Structure formats: C-alpha cells, structure tokens
Computed example of a mutant assay.
Amino acid sequence: METEQKKSMKRMAVLVGCNYENNAVFKLNGCRNDVLAMKEVLISRFGFKPDCIEVLTDEEGSPVLPTAANIKSTLLRMVARSEPGDVLFFHFSGHGILIESLNEEAILGQDLNVITSVDFRQIVKGVPKGATFTILSDSCHSGGLIDKEKEQIGPCDHPTCGNEEIPTPPPNAQAKSVPFEFLLRHLSSITNLAARDIAPHHLELFGDHASLSFKQADKRPEPLEADEGILLSGCQANEVSRDVPTKEGQPPRGAFSYAVETVLKEHPGPLSNREVVLLARKVIKKLQLPQHPCLYCCDGNADAVFLRQS
C-alpha cells in the first residue's frame, strides 16, 4: 500500500526568479541563477520530473514572464492538479516589501504588482488534505507570507540571542529590499494619483489582478488549518535579505537560496524543515550577513522531512 502511494505521489514545483532588469531602481542580479540552481537540486536530489517544474524568469524571450498575475495563476494551476499525498514547492527569489498601511508582507512580481500573505492564504487553502505545500522565499520582509500563527524558528531561536553582535554586511552584498517610498513614488509617477497608500495605485494599474488585500481590505481573512503550509523565509519580517557577497568569477546568488543549496549539498540524507533552516542560518552567519532565516508551520511539519525526501 505504501509503495503504491509513493508511486502515485506527484512532485510539482513553481520556481520564480525576478531580476527586474528593466528598472534601474529595483534591479537585482542573482535571482534567476537561484531558481535555475534550485531546479537542478529538485531533479537530482528530490526526484522532481522536469515537466513538473515550471520556471518563470524575467529574462528576454521568457515564454511566461513572472508578473504577479502569472505567478498566482501558475500556483493555482499547480494546486488544482494536486491530490492527497502530493508534494508542492514554490521558490521565489526577488524583492519583498512591507506594506506599511496593512502591516503585511508581500513579494513583488516583475511588473511590481504585489502578492501578499492574503493572496498566499487563498492559494494554500486549496491544497488537498495530505498534500504538502512548501514555500521558500528569498526576499526581504518574508517572515509571514503564509500565516503568522505558528513561528517555529524566529529571530531569537539561537543560544546567543540578545548577546549576538549583528554584523555589518559587506558592501558588495546587495540588499533585496525596496523602500516603501521608492515603490510609492514609482507607482505615483504612472497613475498620477496623490494617494499615500499603494492600494489605490495598484487598483488603478492592475484592476482585477490587484491583490486581494486591496480588494477585500474590510474583510478579515480566515486563518489556515494547522497543516496547510510550510514557509522557509530568508529573513524575519523586519529584516532585509541580501545577495551573497560577490567574488570574481562567481555568479551572483541570493544568500538564502545559496545557503539552503549549500546545506543540501553538505548533508545528502533527509533533513527536517527545522534542520534546513537552522543549518542555513549557520551558512548565513559565515557570510557575515545580518539576516535570520525563519520557519513558519505547524508543529508536525517543523520536524517533517523537507520535501519528503525518502
């Protein structure tokens, strides 16, 4: 029976890398490299089939650009195809932002439209019982993209908490942050609206594709069930994620993506979600970067094997 279940189990992934090359203010360098490297890891280590992995990048000629609408529709299609027992994975490398008016974390699509925790909650709620949905977000302010109800590994879950000296990041470790004022100014220049909140700008620009956070601002979203999502975030909600300090001849990479892949390379056996995050923290610390990867999920998923590696 167990063998039959393993045979029928599907492993599906959506990998998104946004470099934002068409906008000098928001441009990043290593995000596309992150998801291409992750694709190789998923195939070689976790048994994902290439035709079950969808990659969205903003390079020229990309068949599907990673706009917020395309990211959400691709995730919804993956969830719609899933069945109990399946393994679903979403890896995002790009900009994150804290929406101050809502005190809510979000990621930025290539078009600078946001996908908020409310949007992710809506997507994850469609995952069937018995399937797992894991999000690995290499972006700023990413410590609450699914739900904040259960923080398994937070900013102070290490022995030296309170006494730890926060390192100054190397000057060549690019921050993956967008100041709220920058985004607001950019949107205002397009919409010509004077609003100090980004919601009217997004509703004007993106219409039906704007975030549910703006369209349902007066509705309190229902909490997720205990087993409906696993979030590995590159930093806590008030921190900035960064790139690996660049070295000559080394392709640019996001620090958290690089750290997770380093951990998986150094530990070939199964690792729990908790172990992946704690070991990734050690890699980040060696890079002298002031960010603390976090884990958000129910108690059972914290010690479950990452992507159900057998």
Results as ranks from 00 to 15, higher is better:
residue 2 E to A: 14
residue 3 T to F: 10
residue 5 Q to T: 14
residue 10 K to C: 01
residue 10 K to T: 02
residue 10 K to W: 00
residue 11 R to D: 04
residue 14 V to I: 14
residue 15 L to W: 09
residue 33 N to C: 08
residue 36 L to T: 09
residue 41 V to Y: 05
residue 46 F to V: 07
residue 48 F to K: 04
residue 53 I to A: 04
residue 58 D to Y: 02
residue 61 G to V: 10
residue 67 T to P: 06
residue 67 T to D: 04
residue 74 T to L: 02
residue 74 T to H: 03
residue 75 L to R: 02
residue 78 M to E: 00
residue 82 S to C: 04
residue 84 P to Y: 07
residue 91 H to N: 11
residue 93 S to A: 15
residue 97 I to S: 04
residue 107 I to D: 06
residue 110 Q to R: 12
residue 113 N to Q: 14
residue 115 I to A: 08
residue 123 I to L: 14
residue 123 I to R: 03
residue 133 F to N: 08
residue 136 L to Y: 12
residue 136 L to Q: 06
residue 139 S to R: 03
residue 139 S to M: 09
residue 142 S to A: 15
residue 143 G to V: 13
residue 148 K to F: 05
residue 156 C to Y: 12
residue 163 N to S: 14
residue 163 N to K: 15
residue 165 E to L: 15
residue 167 P to T: 12
residue 169 P to D: 08
residue 169 P to A: 15
residue 170 P to E: 08
residue 172 N to A: 13
residue 177 S to C: 13
residue 186 H to N: 11
residue 187 L to D: 08
residue 190 I to N: 01
residue 201 H to I: 06
residue 214 F to D: 01
residue 216 Q to M: 10
residue 218 D to Y: 06
residue 218 D to T: 13
residue 226 A to Y: 00
residue 227 D to G: 10
residue 227 D to R: 10
residue 228 E to G: 02
residue 228 E to Y: 01
residue 230 I to W: 05
residue 231 L to M: 07
residue 232 L to Q: 09
residue 233 S to A: 15
residue 238 N to P: 00
residue 244 V to K: 01
residue 245 P to H: 07
residue 247 K to A: 15
residue 251 P to Y: 00
residue 254 G to H: 05
residue 257 S to N: 03
residue 260 V to M: 06
residue 266 E to D: 14
residue 270 P to L: 06
residue 270 P to E: 11
residue 273 N to P: 07
residue 276 V to H: 03
residue 280 A to D: 04
residue 280 A to E: 05
residue 282 K to G: 05
residue 283 V to S: 07
residue 293 P to G: 10
residue 302 A to P: 03
residue 304 A to W: 09
residue 307 L to Y: 13
residue 309 Q to N: 11
